[in-house]
Simulated scan of single mutants.
Amino acid sequence: MSAQKPAPPPARMPLALLPGLLLDRRLWRHQEAALADLAETWVADFDGLDSVEAMAERVLAAMPERFALCGLSMGGYVALSVARLAPGRVERLCLMDTRAAPDSPEVTARRRGLLELAQKGQFKGVTPKLLPLLVHPDRLEDAALTGDLMAQAERIGRDGFTRQQTAIMNRPDARPWLAGIRCPTLVMVGRQDALTPLENATELAAGIPDSRLVVVEDCGHLPPLERPEETSRQLRQWLLR
């Protein structure tokens, strides 16, 4: 009697991870490791692109026919555009610390001010101005975290920052197509997010039929870096749902 063959390991789900403004693959390093048994991750690089739709097209070109999709902040704007362009391809969606609505005039003015600073040759001054908006106040003295963020911004560079801000400022209003998103959707937000606060996440969750809202406590705009274990735990539950 021949020995029974062991069952093949379950296939890992393709998972696209989309970083935010001035962030790169390092944003997702904990999640890539923690979810390796469940997901075959691909982290987007938006170098050279200056529109959210072009970024979405790059994601679609890189991914297989069906995949899971998670975007933070600017990556969330791109993820919403992917869901609009190819709803049948997105198996499940995670929108993290992002919003569906366009920027307010005040936010647009702040973006333009940062662009002017960068264009005057003071790009290295941009990230320190953003740091109080990016992380929980208690983490501003965390040299490892702030140094990591500064290094990511430096890798994106002034020209990349300009293209990303241009894409963000010209992005479409995603609210009209939220109701058409039919895949299981996780909406996550840091409780103390100063850039895309809780009301933005609440609007997303209210507009998407099959959605679940998770608020990460003691956390600002960057849960993958500020609360990596909790972020990975929530993404694991989302992938297994």
Rank of each mutant, 00 (worst) to 15 (best):
C219W: 02
G180M: 00
I208D: 03
V216L: 05
C219I: 02
S211I: 11
G220V: 11
A205P: 11
E116P: 00
M188Y: 02
L140V: 07
I208R: 00
P172W: 08
A118P: 09
L178M: 06
V216D: 06
G207H: 08
L195F: 07
M169D: 11
P137L: 10
A201P: 11
K129D: 14
D173C: 13
A205H: 05
L134D: 07
V135Q: 11
K124P: 13
L131P: 05
V214C: 13
R175M: 09
C183L: 11
L198I: 12
P176Y: 04
Q152D: 14
P132H: 07
A143E: 14
A153C: 13
G125H: 10
E141F: 07
P176K: 07
L198Y: 04
V189E: 03
G121I: 12
D218Y: 02
F161L: 07
K124F: 07
L117F: 06
L198V: 10
R212E: 10
A205S: 13
D138K: 15
A118R: 09
R182K: 14
G180R: 15
T127I: 14
K129P: 04
A153R: 09
A167K: 07
L117G: 08
E199G: 01
D159K: 02
D159Y: 01
E116I: 00
P197L: 02
A194F: 06
L178I: 08
A144R: 14
E154H: 05
R158W: 04
G147C: 06
R163V: 09
E116K: 12
Q122I: 00
P128Q: 03
G113L: 00
E203R: 05
E116L: 08
G147D: 10
W177T: 13
T196P: 02
A144H: 11
V189L: 08
